[in-house]
Design a protein around this nucleic acid. Structure first.
Length: 693
DNA sequence: CGGTAGACAGAGTAC
DNA sequence: CTGTCTACCG
């Protein structure tokens, strides 16, 4: 323990040793918070003789959970019965224990938003969709409704209609023996409220509650924590209000802002010493975030060197932006492996894919479409989900008609009706398919064959999951379904499925192992394959970059409407740009040594060229931290010309700068001269003065 | 039931 | 621009 404490700074030590009250550790970016949490858990176990079994640590990503667990077990060199999980996976653990209390079996499966959307689509079709709103719209409403534990005050929404759709949705999930994401939290709370004895059981077990990324908790998660904590236990939360970027997912920044009001005897310990970034980068981060009102307030400092100034450049369009980034990387000799390109929206990776591919520049996109969200992967996984939980209608519908074998919506509905009539699961309905009226002889035969495939699997004594999955895939002819689409796309899908098969070769074919695997697939989507990351430039959204760090960071597309996003402006009236500013702050603080920020003058949006203005956030960076116009290295012309400036030339007279471009590192301005036509001039070679209009 | 063509809406971050 | 939904025909 001594050596652990010695390696901590005073702030961190204080956070580890302070155990008499409820504590909020307000940890800025790069201040070593994971280290503090793990040290704290080690301290509990080693110095306070706390049984590991009584510790509950909740995180938001499985990555963080695994990292903590690993560090602790490495220290003690032994496995512990430590409950370190994400909110969702912790609740899933409780729900599997207590499933019968919410009319489910422990084999329940979890619907992702895609599955939920399909359920809602079916329901809306039945109701003829009175309000003519999309399934996605209702999914969002239901999510919000659940996150707020039914205490939402919807405005301008037909509540009777909503309630009807909501009830049908809940009914569908119940019949499918499934939960959606929000259910995991809310149904757990439901059990705790309804059955105090059950709550007592968990409360008396988990005496020490630690929460990571507290700024990302939503209302229901907050309620869950309060229930578990009760009056008896202490709670320790770690978070950073400046990095609260998941409002769209229900995160309520007020949880962290109000911590001292919500819990009595609460203490705040700040961690402000940053180990990650150079001073210029930290100063940039600090000057941006201080424009936010909703803060507890902290100011990062470091003992690192000043470092390089922040490079800011503009590009003609999104393709030019890519080319300039390649140029900068070459000139500054950035290693691809240590470089990340961060953007606001996933589709901004496109021009990079195009150009990087053209020049064979190695890159990897992190987390755009998670592997497990791909159509073909979901198809394959849905087979296993249905095997484990044969009431799951959505999973059954996914694979049953791939390749098409004449089993369409009509037949599927007849099967569902049959299973509902007798309270069978779907497998049993297939077994008795001959009794179902309205299905043709031919189709009946096909369904019986499918029943045989699943029935026989039990007798085959298959040992590992890859073999089992392969058996189903071959018998059901899923490969053929995708191979028949004789294109690169189809072949990619086949190879993705093969990758999936080989990834489960170490999983034993027991119900529990498969159940555990399926839960991980849904609750801990892997960002990418680690093996392919080396020596490659990383492309990812600012959201996905949270918690990561890179030597060199490009933040691209810093334009009004994009970053800050115009959609976030519609979302709320007050402080509408604060969440976006936090996101920018997160992006800035990912950089260790070099930070480059860029924006475009034009951008192709939905097929149209649109003129852009640079982001308001850029103006919040003090000019003395910026290295402007990276390409203007000669410094012949000290004037900082920009688009829209009115200028005067001794021969051509007055004109207006339309845009500024760079050719071979030299600034070139396209100027619309009033007495002449429009033409381009090298800014650093001509005599040009800026004048007032 | 299934495939396809053409219309049309939407366009964002993700456990 | 692109993905999705609808209408129609085999």
């Amino acid at each position: 323990m001594e050596e652990i404490l010695q390696s901590l700074n005073n702030e961190q030590k204080n956070a580890v040793l302070n155990n008499d009250s409820n504590v909020l550790i307000l940890a800025g970016a790069g201040t070593g918070k994971t280290r503090v949490i793990t040290s704290k858990i080690i301290y509990f176990i080693k110095e306070k003789n706390v049984s590991p079994r009584t510790i509950l640590a909740v995180t938001f990503t499985n990555k963080a959970a695994n990292e903590m667990k690993e560090r602790i077990e490495n220290y003690f060199k032994s496995d512990f019965d430590l409950m370190i999980r994400t909110f969702h996976s912790f609740c899933s653990y409780i729900l599997r224990n207590e499933a019968f209390l919410v009319n489910r079996s422990r084999y329940f499966q979890i619907f992702d938003s895609d599955d939920s959307g399909k359920v809602l689509k079916k329901i809306l079709a039945e109701y003829k969709n009175i309000e003519n709103k999309s399934a996605r719209y209702y999914y969002k409403l239901i999510q919000i409704y659940k996150q707020n534990l039914g205490k939402t005050h919807f405005k301008n929404i037909d509540l009777d209609n909503f309630k009807k759709i909501y009830d049908s949705y809940e009914d569908y999930l119940l019949k499918s023996n499934c939960f959606d994401f929000e259910d995991l939290i809310t149904k757990t709370i439901g059990i705790f409220n309804k059955y105090p004895m059950i709550l007592e059981k968990y409360k008396s077990r988990f005496k020490y509650i630690l929460v990571d990324e507290y700024q990302d908790t939503n209302k229901s998660q907050f309620e869950l924590l309060k229930l578990l904590k009760g009056k008896e236990n202490k709670i320790l939360v770690v978070g950073d209000e400046d990095q609260s970027i998941y409002k769209f997912r229900g995160a309520d920044i007020n949880n962290i802002l109000n911590f001292q009001n919500d819990f009595d005897d609460a203490k705040i310990i700040k961690l402000e010493l940053n180990y990650r970034s150079t001073e210029y980068i930290l100063e940039t981060a600090n000057s941006v975030i201080k424009n936010n009102q909703l803060r507890l307030g902290k100011n990062l400092y470091c003992n690192n060197k000043k470092g390089n100034k922040i490079t800011l450049f503009n590009a003609v369009n999104e393709l030019d932006e890519v080319e300039k980034i390649i140029d900068i990387m070459n000139q500054k000799k950035f290693k691809p492996d240590e470089t990340a390109i961060l953007y606001r929206t996933n589709n901004q990776s496109r021009p990079f894919e195009q150009i990087f591919n053209k020049f064979s520049i190695p890159f990897v996109i992190l987390g755009s479409i998670a592997f497990y969200e791909r159509e073909e992967i979901k198809d394959a996984v849905s087979i296993l989900k249905w095997v484990i939980n044969p009431r799951d209608r959505i999973s059954f519908s996914r694979f049953i008609n791939k390749p098409s074998r004449g089993i369409g919506e009509k037949t599927i509905n007849l099967i569902f009706n049959e299973s509902e009539k007798h309270d069978y699961d779907i497998l049993k309905a297939l077994k008795n398919i001959n009794e179902v009226k309205g299905i043709s002889k031919n189709t009946c035969k096909k369904l019986s064959d499918i029943y045989q495939i699943f029935y026989s699997a039990n007798d085959m004594n298959i040992k590992t999951l890859d073999k089992l999955l392969l058996y189903y895939l071959e018998k059901l002819k899923i490969y053929e379904h995708y191979e028949i689409i004789d294109s690169k796309e189809g072949l990619d899908k086949v190879s993705n499925i093969k990758e999936l098969v080989s990834s489960v070769r170490n999983i034993i074919c027991s119900e529990d192992e498969i159940l555990n695997y399926l839960e991980n697939v849904t609750l801990s989507p892997v960002l990418d394959d680690e093996k392919g990351r080396k020596e490659k430039i990383k492309l990812l959204t600012a959201h996905n970059a949270k918690g990561l760090e890179f030597e060199n960071v490009f933040i691209i597309g810093m334009e009004e409407g994009l970053f800050p996003s115009s959609r976030s402006m519609e979302d709320e009236i007050e402080n509408y740009d604060e969440e976006e500013r936090r996101l920018f702050y997160v992006a800035i603080t990912r950089a260790k040594s070099n930070l480059i920020i860029s924006y475009c003058q034009n951008r192709n949006l939905y097929g149209l060229f649109t003129e852009r203005t640079r982001s308001r956030f850029i103006d919040e960076i003090p000019e003395n931290l910026l290295q402007l116009n990276f390409y203007n290295q000669n410094g012949n012309n000290k004037i900082n010309f920009k688009t829209g400036d009115v200028v005067k030339h001794k021969d051509y007279g007055k004109g207006k700068i339309i845009r500024i471009d760079f050719i071979n590192g030299k600034r070139v301005a396209l100027i619309d001269f009033w007495d002449h036509s429009c033409f381009e001039l090298f800014l650093d070679k001509i005599k040009l003065e800026k004048i007032e209009e």
